[in-house]
């Protein structure tokens, strides 16, 4: 099988098409699975109920039914809305989400673009969604949408900083911005001379991991940080005027971003696709194990995000900003300093 595959000489556009399709299928499957597993089921169990049970066995086709419903709905917008920007905004958010997956490695070769500055690219491209959200809020011609978009803008920019600063600790320790190099550094690393489990950076960079996950929760505007779409004050924030397929795009983008950030967190802190090098799996085996490995880790981390989301009540706007500027950013800076000192010492 591998002989046949390696004998195939594909043109660049053919390779790109295959990678795009495989990536798209993987992202959408993971997103749908996460929505079913956590949003429909796990959360229901946490609230002592069953969740959807009618569509398919144990409600497993519920998401398809929802998508069918959204596609049928009328596409409406307000009279004063800036129609072009209004229509473009969900696309910007979705594109920024899908572009995140370009550099996430899922195996020794399974990465769409092995950029030298991979993590920098991810953090830059994920903050593009702020522009989409501000566009949506401004073009909706609705004061709730505008307030929601402004809150989202303030929040996403505030939490972009701890996100970047938290990642810097890992980057210093691994000595590279490339996600593949970070994976290999964890796989080949050792702690106090023990290499049995490699060196997943959650052990040495647990402060950075905590900061990263809190910032991810805020970047996703999941519940303790869902001020931008606070339904009791802003109806649905910047999404308020969207219906039908455009709302569906926001929905996909929200949960695909959750999967994307979880995949990045598992790559940075949990060892990514690689198993510890001392376990002695060949590259050929890792082509199969790798994607499964990183998917399981990512789905687990999304579970943590949803667990937190459905446990805590919402922050007030000033508390939310205070946590970012007075709590997380100084902590992340201290983490960088300590990591840098220890890196030089050892």
């Amino acid at each position: 099988m591998t002989g046949v595959l390696s004998a195939l000489e594909l043109a660049y556009w053919q390779q790109t098409t295959i990678r795009l399709l495989a990536g798209l299928v993987a992202v959408l499957l993971l997103t749908g699975g996460v929505v079913y597993l956590y949003l429909f089921k796990f959360v229901s169990f946490m609230q002592s109920r069953l969740g959807p049970m009618e569509a398919g066995p144990y409600g497993s086709l519920q998401l398809l039914a929802e998508v069918g419903k959204w596609i049928q709905k009328e596409d409406i917008s307000t009279k004063d809305a800036d129609k072009f920007i209004f229509g473009l905004a969900p696309a910007v958010v979705l594109v920024s989400t899908f572009l995140m997956f370009v550099v996430i490695p899922a195996g020794p070769n399974a990465v769409m673009a092995d950029l030298g500055t991979g993590i920098y690219y991810v953090l830059a491209i994920s903050s593009l969604s702020v522009i989409g959200i501000l566009m949506a809020g401004w073009a909706s011609a609705n004061k709730y949408a505008l307030m929601g978009a402004l809150r989202a803008g303030g929040q996403l920019i505030a939490y972009e900083l701890p996100l970047v600063l938290g990642v810097l600790g890992v980057v210093i320790q691994a000595g590279s911005l490339n996600l593949q190099d970070i994976v290999y550094a964890q796989s080949n690393g050792e702690i106090f001379g023990i290499s049995a489990i490699g060196n997943p950076y959650i052990l040495t960079q647990f402060v950075a991991f905590a900061i990263f996950m809190i910032a991810v929760q805020a970047e996703l505007t999941q519940t303790p940080f869902d001020m931008p779409i606070a339904e009791s004050e802003l109806v649905a924030g910047y999404q308020v005027e969207y219906s039908g397929i455009r709302f569906l795009v926001y929905f996909i983008a929200e949960f695909a971003t959750a999967v994307g950030f979880a995949a990045i967190a598992s790559t940075l802190f949990l060892g990514g696709w690689a198993l510890p090098a001392s376990w002695g799996f060949s590259d050929t085996a890792m082509h199969v194990i790798g994607p499964i490995n990183v998917s399981i880790k990512a789905v687990f981390l999304v579970g943590v995000v949803f667990w937190v989301r459905f446990t805590f009540p919402r922050f007030r706007e000033d508390q939310l900003q205070r946590l970012a500027w007075k709590g997380l950013i100084p902590l992340a800076l201290a983490n960088i300093v300590v990591t840098a000192i220890l890196k030089v010492v050892f």
Binding site: S44, F45, M46, S48, R49, L50, W307, F310
Partner: peptide, 25 residues
């Protein structure tokens, strides 16, 4: 929240097979 989820999925204890339709309120 985690304990509620556990009690819903495994109403008879973790060793028995999961039975959410029995555990749910």
């Amino acid at each position: 929240t985690l304990r509620t989820a556990k009690e819903t999925i495994f109403p008879d204890g973790m060793l028995k097979p999961p039975a959410p339709s029995k555990g749910a309120a």
